[in-house]
Amino acid sequence: MLEVKNLVKTFQSGDTKVQATKDITFSVPDGQFASVVGRSGSGKSTLLALLGALDKPTSGSIVVGDQDITTLSDHQLIKYRCESIGFVFQNYNLVPSLTALENVMLPMEFAGVVRPERLARAKKLLEEVGLETDQMQRKPGRLSGGQQQRVAIARALANRPKLILADEPTGNLDTETGKKIFDLLHNLSRTEQATILVVTHDLAIAGKTDKTFRLEDGELHEETTKQ
């Protein structure tokens, strides 16, 4: 269960304070595929950064499972990011000097998984996202956008996280590839039993998720849930 209560994030911009998220409260049950929609600058990415423990909120709480991540120390946050969160970015954000396989193995290395095990799991994940064996040894620069995003999804699933956060995962892809990536995420959330929260401005994609939140000027305005 992802449970967010009265989440506020304020940035200092020169002499003025900007409230990126305003008293946000929502929850997503385990294994659900949820989406947050909103226009550019509405605070979607800030919300994702807070949920992913990339940034600290000004106030409020974020409970993942039974753990309030706003109370964790820096060291505990590193462990949390490593073991409980999977990130998928719009620009893929793969490490350019590593091959696709090494990119997927990287979070497992951080989690202390032994090499043979992480190699086997990385190969399995890459096969599941549809990457060919020869493509696994390629560096990101030699992969297409769709292939890179598949690698990024495999990387996000590497440590079997409770929560996968995806920031505009289809934003840089053509419609066809975007649809495939979305379907892939959807299917994997089922097989891997992970809660997925996708941030998107694409209402068509949002419409396919179990639960949708609308974010406007840092405020969560409405919520729709599929029956």
Binding site: I78, R81, F89, P107, F110, N159
Partner: peptide
Amino acid sequence: KREIGVVKAIGGSNLR
């Protein structure tokens, strides 16, 4: 800098 941020985001520690 961005790459460092990515590695930190996926669980890499400062020390590593």
